[in-house]
Simulated scan of single mutants.
Amino acid sequence: MTASSKKTVSQAQSNETQKAVQAFNALDTDAKLAWLYFVYEKMGDSITPAAPTAADPELAPLLLGDYLQLSDDQQLEIMRDIVNCKDTEYSRAYGALKENNQLLVWYAWAVAMGDTVVDMPSNYNSTGASNELLSQVEGLDFEGQISVLRAIAGEMGYSDVKPIETQAQTGKTPSL
């Protein structure tokens, strides 16, 4: 069994935001990728200031540099690997980032789509579930939108770093 960066406690605090994260998780891989693209296309002006100003692009040279030199097929496979938490070089690089930097990666990729990043297929039709989720997230306030996006971004990628067990799990109090 492999480890992934899937978190057991979502950053999405309200019922609405938790439902949005669950709805995203129910989508298939390509629908998730399309949804992320549509989020940045439709809501980019409102959500992008939060990620880039709170992130450091120099922390992701593999994802924001080397990645751009790859073929469309290679880029798409890397995106799919990250969404599916596969143990690959790029998925590990993504999984090692904090959520703001992960959002910056998706933002940079969305901005470069059709230029240096593989574009959305022209014949792609989004699903009803994807459209409904997009509307649901658009209806959230800014904090709710960012909460959903951070939770989604943070559940992707691969990491074999395990969360520290809580006192409730170990039965021991932490010591200095």
Rank of each mutant, 00 (worst) to 15 (best):
T166L: 06
G154V: 00
Q167T: 11
S4W: 13
T116C: 06
D160R: 02
Y107R: 08
E99P: 15
V83E: 04
V83F: 03
K6G: 05
L140Q: 07
A153F: 06
A54L: 06
I152Y: 07
D160T: 15
E155D: 15
K19Q: 15
V39K: 06
T48K: 15
M156Y: 12
D87V: 05
Q11Y: 09
L33R: 11
S5K: 14
P121A: 06
T53Y: 06
A112M: 10
Y158H: 15
D30H: 10
D30T: 11
G144D: 09
D28K: 12
L133S: 07
Y37C: 02
I78W: 13
Q102V: 01
L64T: 14
S5L: 10
F24W: 12
I47H: 11
Q13G: 05
R80E: 10
G154F: 03
A112V: 00
A50D: 05
G128A: 06
L70A: 14
A110V: 00
M120P: 00
M79G: 12
C85P: 02
P174C: 03
R92K: 15
V39I: 12
G128C: 00
T166C: 04
E41S: 14
A51K: 00
S5A: 12
E16G: 09
Q75T: 12
A110L: 01
N84G: 01
D72M: 13
M113A: 13
F142L: 11
I82L: 08
G171F: 04
N100C: 00
G128S: 07
A108F: 02
T127M: 06
A20P: 00
V111H: 04
I146D: 00
P174A: 10
A50P: 00
A34G: 02
Q22N: 14
N125G: 13
V117I: 14
N15D: 11
Y158L: 08
L36P: 01
E138M: 11
C85G: 08
R150T: 04
S159H: 05
K98T: 07
G95P: 08
M156S: 05
Y124E: 01
Q75E: 10
A55V: 08
G144K: 06
E138D: 08
Q18K: 12
Q145T: 10
A51V: 08
G154Y: 04
Q69K: 14
Q13D: 08
K7T: 07
P52L: 02
E132R: 09
I82C: 07
Q136K: 13
